[in-house]
Each structure stands twice: as C-alpha cells, then as structure tokens.
Simulated assay, not measured.
Amino acid sequence: MPRYFAIVPAAGSGSRFGAEKPKQYLSLLGRPLIHHTLAALVACPEIERVWVVLSPDDAEWSRHDWSDLGAKLETVRCGGATRADSVGNGLRAAAMVATDDDWVLVHDAARPCLSADMLAALLRELADDPVGGILAVPVADTLKRADAEQRVAATEPRDGLWQAQTPQMFRYGRLAEALENCRAVTDEAGAIEAMGHKPKLVKGDSTNLKVTFPADLALAAMILRGRK
C-alpha cells in the first residue's frame, strides 16, 4: 500500500507581507504561524512524516519549541531560490524513505487554517486517482483585467475557474520527475500539467486561506478561534 508524506517549503522571506521576519514565524494565537500549519499535517493519522524545508541560513526556527508536534516532524535546511527548488530539494531529502508510488502532499507554510475535514477529503478523493490533485475553490468574484494605468481593460468570464490551494498531492516519482523538468511554475500542479496530466480539483473552502498580507493574519486568527 502506498504511504503518505508531506513537504512544507518554508524558505521564503514573505517580502509582500512587509514584516521584519519571514511571515511563517509571525505570531498567530501565541504560536508561530507555521506551527498551526504543521500541527494540521502531523495530526493526520495517514501522514507518516512531515519535512519542513528551511533556508540554509534560517536563524528563526531554533528560537521556538516544536516538541509538541511529535516525532513525525523533520527539518531539512536545503531551501532554494524558488518554491520549485525548495520542493525539489525536499523530495530528494525524502528519497531515503519514499518510493515512486507513495503520495506526497505539498502544503504552503502560510496556510495555517487547513482543517482535518479538508485534509481527509483530499486523501479520500485522490486515493485511487491516476494523477493526483489539489484542494481548490471555485472562483466566486467577478474578475477584472487591468491595463497599464490600472483601469479595467476587460471583465473575464469566471465559468470553470478555480482558485488553487494546498495541499497539492501527487505520487512521489511523478512529482519528482515533473519538477526536475519544469521549474518555472508557481505550484506543483503546474509542473504536473506541463507533463500532459490533468490534476483533479478537490473542493476545499475559503477558510483555507494563504496569509499574504497583514489583514490575512487577523482573519486566520478569527478562523482558528472559531474552531476552538
């Protein structure tokens, strides 16, 4: 039977957030933001191991206590210049235990509100899928394309459009091959698509937000408080 592993690329600087430290270490309900992200993954009984891919010069990780996350959690200091580089390096670190048919879930460090139900739905719907897939939500808002002067150039039809989230879940061998051959992507699904495959869209919900700006951090706190 295939096993399940997770990789969390956490080598980014979070420059769009504008904080003095990487956003994954900002305080969220008294813990670093990434603590909530990792807690959701290690709590999943199907996931055997979670690798956090840090920047080689990350000085913040060691300032925090991660012991309550348990023995599933491992850190590797091999983060690269891009997300694809970091995930690819994480896959190489996982090669000691993962086989080609095992599942790998890649999850954003800055998505702290992943629920157990969403994670269970992803594993359930993709268990026998030949390609794999991602959590995503249908686009609900009207989309406007801007011109060079930041004026509306066109209204884009939203039929069939989905907003990609994470985790993104693919077989170890296929994902490693895809990222080796296609690094100019912003998510793992893009690399799989470049190989001619069609990842499945598994419906999540808007609470699985990515913290990108300061207002997102406050919203994440509200979501997590509401669950408790």
Rank of each mutant, 00 (worst) to 15 (best):
V42I: 07
M222R: 14
S15L: 14
V211N: 10
N181C: 03
V50T: 06
G90H: 07
P2L: 05
S115R: 09
L41P: 02
L28T: 07
V137D: 01
V97Y: 05
A11M: 01
D108H: 15
L54W: 09
W51L: 15
V50R: 06
T166N: 05
R3T: 12
R174F: 03
V53F: 03
F17W: 09
T207D: 14
E74S: 14
L135G: 04
P2H: 13
R158K: 15
L114E: 05
Q165P: 02
V76N: 04
F213S: 04
L209P: 03
M96W: 04
P167H: 09
K72P: 10
R16M: 11
E177G: 06
V53M: 03
E193V: 14
P32N: 04
D187K: 03
H35V: 01
L217C: 12
E193W: 00
Q24P: 00
T166Q: 09
N89D: 12
E188D: 10
E46T: 07
A95L: 11
L69W: 10
L38V: 12
A189S: 14
V152R: 02
V152L: 01
L224A: 11
K23V: 14
A146I: 00
A6F: 02
G80E: 08
D102A: 12
I7D: 01
A93K: 11
I7N: 00
L54D: 10
R77D: 06
P130L: 11
A164R: 01
E46P: 03
A220V: 06
I192D: 08
V202N: 10
D216S: 05
T75Q: 14
L38Y: 06
T186L: 09
W51Y: 15
F17P: 11
G133P: 09
L179G: 13
A98S: 10
E188F: 00
L219E: 15
L179R: 07
C182K: 01
W103V: 05
N181Q: 13
A140I: 00
G160D: 13
L54P: 02
V50W: 06
A10S: 12
V106Q: 04
F5M: 05
I192E: 09
H197P: 01
L126F: 05
E188C: 15
G80R: 02
G90S: 09
R63N: 12
A59G: 01
F170M: 06
I47H: 03
H197C: 13
S15T: 15
A221S: 15
A84R: 01
K228S: 11
G173A: 08
I7M: 09
Q150P: 00
R83Y: 12
H36P: 07
A6M: 03
V42S: 09
A140D: 04
D159Q: 14
A136L: 08
C78L: 14
M118V: 05
A218Q: 15
A194F: 07
C113D: 08
Q168P: 02
S86G: 06
G18M: 11
Q24E: 05
V50K: 04
G79W: 05
A81P: 00
